[in-house]
Design a protein around this nucleic acid. Structure first.
Lengths: 352, 352
DNA sequence: AAAATCTAGGAAACCGGTTTCCTATCTCGT
DNA sequence: ACGAGATAGGAAACCGGTTTCCTAGATTTT
């Protein structure tokens, strides 16, 4: 029924051990035997059971990816980047979304550990530093992608949010705006704290104070952007420009603006962050900071697999398990993509 | 170092067998022993190795999902739907994208089988009927989501493409268009053949012939839509309306139209298919047929897991393995979402 | 020609769980 | 007081691979 290495061995007239050696092309299998085994494998359509192999080897060749919500258009690019290199290097992807909820994230991590993933890429971290470090101690490599924990010695790959936000707000200032609002992400995510800092610094450098009524922080869903727009526009002294912490939030602004008859960019300038695939098809095309999700995904996966394989190599050698390598921090340079939602009439431009 | 059931057994002063019984809450474990084991598990932070369990049980509680490209905005919704129910029912998701390529798809299937997935949801099938049937014979359940193979007895969950396309074209006809082009998907995907048929039938019912120069079939990427737009507009007698087989293709039309100064819907009406998340934020908001990707994903996963678990139950019973259940075919009713790219000035409407 | 080394392949233990089967008490009906 | 059944738990086989260790013959070295 189910064909195993034993069936192949019987068919080829050799032992399980020899078939196994063939499969791992170990030395000391004669050409003749090799052919017998190949014929048997073809005849029986044998597929080695990689979980059995993994059990023995403590290898699953599987990595976990946790995103907040795959419906947020930022993540598919990230996942694609991860998949590109994972597949190329022989790893499979276990995907789960946490809804940005710490409890769910914890359960996902638990489930992934039970499934023996060799590493986890967090594109959403609601875990505390301590929990993440505990994971690392448990043979599970961890990479943060597009997120970072400032105080934990963990690898991460991100775009420089501070600089990106600065560029965005600086550009709005150049347009002459003085009342620039910020729709931010959750306060406790470092990446969004950085965007907030970049926003503040740009205002400060222009000699302006941050008006707390112009800063709205909360969720990351499109609806949160709509809500924030309405709240800002209901102000006695509404802003003339908005810097949204993500394109998804900016899309919410776009939709709410259209619903309320507010013209963008004529009555309200808007800049987003991420350069999500459809930001250039929106009405109007969204001026945004390129977050290089694909590149982040690729580098995160690459770094993770490097970590896995170097740990693998050293564990058979001397290897003192206390010697954790220094955490790697990859920062991509952000680029401002000037389209039309900021009020520029030009065709697309790039500024660093 | 690595904590196993043996460590728990030693710590609790019982045997592996008893711990195992506890884990599977089998009967005949006394309250006292139960508490000893619980304490040991907590103390050691024991996580059962689900691959070891799977090896013995022939269960992985893992399902594979194959999409063409996760960057196509249709798929994230589908995946979300699948994940919702998979997680709820205790299954993990192995995700891979095939680029719509048969060779890659074959390799992915191979890798997934080796990893002992209990079933595969194909949201992209480039495999032949024979290959899919072979999979089914190999203990791997198969569901097609948003795809179908007309001649193979395989479960599928789709939206009624024929009817949806008919609705879309009928609506363009109602606007008075007589030269309606169709940008189709690959000819050998049944779902797109159906959309083509719906297009033809609607024209026919209006007493019009299909002009082959107005039908362009090929890829599904946004760029394919741009290309098709340029090709159609270069015609001596260009169309006044386009029915695109997917929103993604329609986005390509939108982008190319903007680049060439062609106004939509004034100079060219456009209707898409899928109701991808951002179709209502596009410029102009895209009139489209709702493909209910989320619902398809949910039902596909639900059906798959039902299949897995009923097969599981019966295999211990008498079970005659030739008795394959009749394939299930779920068809969702399509809805036309009237927005503005078709030329309607109204706010959003729904027509069935 | 004897010793050393290399080559090819097999037996059995092992990975971490589950399951079968067996034994020892305990309870209960008569 | 005794046999039947229920309860609690352990020893060992098992899932499907890999790996260690061993042996026998071939080849090389001295």
């Amino acid at each position: 029924m189910r064909v195993t290495i034993k069936d192949v061995a019987r068919e080829a007239g050799v032992s399980k051990a020899t078939v196994s050696k063939y499969l791992n092309n170990a030395p000391y299998v004669s050409e003749h035997t090799r052919q017998l085994i190949e014929a048997a494998i073809r005849k029986l359509d044998f597929q080695p059971n990689s979980t059995a192999r993994g059990l023995r080897n403590h290898r699953s060749h599987c990595i976990g990816v946790i995103v907040a919500s795959i419906l947020n258009p930022f993540y598919p690019q990230l996942i694609q980047g991860i998949e590109d290199v994972a597949t190329a290097r022989g790893y499979a992807l276990l995907l789960a979304s946490s809804d940005g909820d710490a409890r769910q994230e914890h359960q996902i991590v638990q489930a992934m550990r039970q499934r023996q993933v060799e590493g986890i890429i967090f594109a959403s971290v609601r875990l505390t530093d301590r929990e993440v470090l505990k994971l690392k101690r448990m043979h599970t490599h961890v990479i943060l992608a597009s997120r970072h924990l400032p105080d934990a010695p963990v690898d991460y790959v991100i775009v420089d949010s501070y600089k990106g936000a600065y560029l965005a707000v600086e550009h709005l200032l150049m347009h002459g705006h003085r009342r620039i609002a910020h729709i931010g992400g959750p306060e406790n995510i470092a990446q969004f704290a950085d965007r907030m800092r970049g926003y503040s610094k740009a205002l400060e450098d222009a000699g302006l104070d941050v008006d707390p009524t112009l800063v709205i922080r909360g969720g990351l869903r499109l609806e949160d952007g709509e809500l924030a727009f309405r709240q800002l526009m209901a102000l006695a002294n509404p802003p003339t420009a908005i810097f949204a912490a993500t394109d998804n939030l900016a899309f919410g602004v776009l939709r709410a603006a259209r619903a309320s008859g507010c013209l963008i960019p004529e009555q309200l300038a808007l800049v987003g962050f991420d350069n999500v695939p459809f930001s250039d098809i929106a009405a109007p095309p969204l001026t945004t900071v390129d977050g290089n999700a694909l590149g982040i995904g690729r580098h995160a996966a690459s770094l993770l697999i490097d970590r896995i394989e170097s740990a693998q190599g050293s564990s058979t050698a001397e290897s003192d398990h206390t010697a954790a390598p220094d955490p790697m921090h990859l920062l991509f340079e952000p680029q401002l993509l000037i389209r039309q939602s900021c009020g520029c009439q030009t065709t697309e431009q790039i500024r660093r």
